[in-house]
Amino acid sequence: MKKITTILTATILASAIGAGAQAESHVDKAVAGAIAARQATMKLYAFNLGLLGGMAKGEVAYDAAAASGAANNIALLTQLNQMAMWPEGSDEMSVDGTRALSDIWSNMADVMAKGTALSDAAATMQAEAGKGLPELQAAMGAVGGACGACHKAYRAPEK
């Protein structure tokens, strides 16, 4: 009899732990997905900026159509609705695999203002990139400044 009780208790305990683990992994999955999505967005930025940067540095010949195309993509990226990509609890203190500081969630108005600054700079680059190399170079500086403003305030240093 005692044996049965023990087995029962063990089973209940095990299933409770299992349920807990399952709930946890469910949360982890949602957060991990959000982090993967925002990092994918960053990769799209980097890819298109790389096309423009190659021209700005003089490593690749300036091509107005290619420059306009990449600048268009960047401007479009700034228009993505990212609300679902930044769930609470997806900061660097809560989970691995991100450098997002928790300050993001306590300073949302400032984050949004910095986001607007980026979309403004990207819109200028969209208009300027096809005009010529000096115009592209000038626009790169402003976009870089807008990227850096947010990274400076809200991204933890590399470990």
Binding site: G50, G148, P157
Partner: peptide
């Protein structure tokens, strides 16, 4: 000039300030 690394990540931390 722009703060972009060769991987088109951007300067963060104190270096963002230095780039400015």
């Amino acid at each position: 000039t722009s703060g972009f690394t060769p991987d088109y990540d951007s300067a963060g931390g104190e270096m963002a300030e230095v780039v400015q």
